[in-house]
Design a protein around this nucleic acid. Structure first.
Lengths: 342, 342
DNA sequence: CGCAGGAAGTTATACGTAAAACCCCGGCGG
DNA sequence: CCGCCGGGGTTTTACGTATAACTTCCTGCG
């Protein structure tokens, strides 16, 4: 009836449990490991389990990891968790991991770009594999070199190497956005493009350019914008103040940029969407919090994490992860409308 | 000149390095561990380091953790990473950890409430300590029982037990909000209160009630609201549609709720802040993305994480973490104004 | 009666590291 | 000439677990 090791005393080991139960350490390991059928009697197994519970036994994971040579732990590399998209990716990956008795540890790669510092210096535990999201090309080399199974999320197929990949059909998203705006009658576009160099943004730019190239009556200007509302607002303000006819549609690489763009439009005394249409990307919580609600592209972020983790598990299992991009969906809301008749 | 273990071959161990360098494993461990001064000659040390680099040696962390009995890893328990506040807490904790050569692994406690499933089942590595944020009382017991050093963030002092605590001066934040609104002339309040049972929300309610109790000419009604924009909007709509004189100020437990409240107000054809003032809490990115920008209470989320990690390190070091709540700041923006003159 | 074979364990070993304890040798003070 | 010291290592052990290999006992069968 005494508390399980009230304090001070070191944690009980499987040997302690064995001694208390009057069996050998191997038996304890067998029973608690679940693979004792036909090796240990029901009665002994029960006794062992009770004793373990009574002593408050918890297996030493460091020892187990050493013995097994695996840790059932994956490293998830993300640029920044404060970005809702990556928080959702983590959530998805973590959920699948939990289901397979896996753990996920994060490596917040410094500013999402540049030659990330050695992530393994930060990992305090051995890893079974790596899931890297939206990494810059050069940063990836650090991983390719480690012979650890690698899954890349939302990243350039050209960097693929021997890694598995889980990608979003970003290009299709941008095509849908463009199609939607063209159908509404827009012809003069500004692309508020993220300044962060990353495949996920390059694809947006290329898809937009490709779509408009087929329509000679359209114009588009690309303006770089930082990935935050205040900075994006300024960038958008400058874009709108530029000489020449005013653009009727602002195509933004991200919802944060779109929110900033909306503010810039209104600051000029114009209305969204009557005077200027604005589109976002990602469909963050923000998109339905602002007014007007943003027309944007919904990305299945959790699914990216889930598929990423599943791919890693597949690789670890010697299987080949299923190919195929994840579909994205255009969410038409209130920030887009036909251009003014001018 | 050959690549460090191109593939296939198992990772080299310290023994492999020793063999290649023609020294004993102990020497390798000594040199790479950095504590060899006076034990190993400069020349040998250099040789060992070169050999290790050449073979691409990485110490097996599972073995090290086992040997040392410590992992330099902390568990951070958070309700949900998609909540920007907790993502920032993680960021802060992680930064301090990295500086001290520590790791942080997350445990996303299911829906932030209820008797969390055993977090140690999910941790695939042994832990040196736990940082638990905004936990429900009962869920904490699971941790108190483990004899692991525990730091609690933003949680009820009554649940403190033997753990260290890092708290925000939430009550002061709510006092400032209330003071600001009273000074503007508001008298009829609605408190849109989070339905999640948690100390951080209870304090808001108590502080608001206490502040208004001193002013007999005020009225306040408490309306529960979910922690998302859409749900909060509905809750706010119901509150505004209630019989009796319309409230002039909506005090919200969270920026998400405030954003929803703003939308509800406008849906009724009213304006924020001319007809109804709205205040938030947390100062998320959202607060400056919506229009009007939200008057809210800024919480130093990163600092919470930093102080939490520092407190844990202190405890592990046998020191006593410094007490004292972290200050919060009222951010007066555009969503509050004097009430209409009726 | 003898022995195969299964049930129920036990003994022994390996995982890779850190570090305590030990060893050897050259120089130096007594 | 002996003993001692310290620089520069090496040998050895322990950490706690999982599991392969081995033992023992019993039962059933030919």
């Amino acid at each position: 009836m005494k508390a399980p090791e009230p304090l001070g005393g070191p944690r009980p080991t499987s040997r302690d449990v064995a001694a208390a139960a009057g069996v050998s350490q191997a038996t304890v390991s067998l029973v608690l490991g679940g693979k004792w059928h036909g090796r240990v009697s029901e009665r002994t197994a029960g006794l062992v389990r009770d004793t373990a519970r009574r002593l408050g036994y918890r297996p030493n994971l460091a020892a187990r990891n050493l013995r097994l040579g695996r840790t059932r732990t994956a490293l998830l590399v993300v640029p920044a968790l404060t970005n809702e998209f990556f928080a959702r990716v983590y959530t998805g990956a973590s959920a699948v991991a939990a289901r397979h008795d896996f753990g996920v540890v994060l490596y917040p790669s410094p500013q999402g770009v540049g030659p990330a510092r050695d992530p393994f210096a930060s990992a305090r535990t051995a890893l079974d594999g790596v899931i890297a999201s939206s990494m810059a090309t050069d940063a990836l080399h650090a991983f390719h070199d480690t012979d650890l199974p690698l899954v890349m999320l939302d990243s350039d197929p050209a960097d693929r190497g021997s890694a598995a990949q889980v990608n979003l059909d970003i290009a299709d998203g941008m095509r849908q956005v463009t199609g939607h705006l063209l159908a509404l009658g827009h012809r003069r576009f500004v692309h508020l493009a993220s300044a962060v160099p990353s495949w996920t943004f390059d694809v947006r730019a290329r898809a937009l350019a490709a779509a408009l190239r087929e329509r000679p009556d359209t114009t588009v200007r690309t303006v770089p914008a930082p990935l935050d509302v205040a900075g994006a607002r300024e960038a958008a303000a400058r874009a709108l103040a530029a000489p020449g006819p005013r653009p009727t549609a602002l195509v933004c690489d991200d919802d944060l940029i779109a929110a900033g763009a909306c503010k810039a439009v209104r600051r000029l005394g114009l209305r969204v969407p009557e005077d200027v249409s604005v589109t976002g990307f990602d469909d963050l919580a923000l998109a339905t919090a602002v007014e007007p609600e943003l027309t944007t592209v919904g990305l299945p972020a959790e699914q990216v994490g889930e598929r990423g983790m599943e791919a890693l598990l597949a690789v670890l299992d010697g299987r080949t992860p299923p190919p195929g991009d994840l579909p994205v969906t255009l969410r038409v809301r209130a920030s887009t409308a036909p251009p003014p008749r001018a």
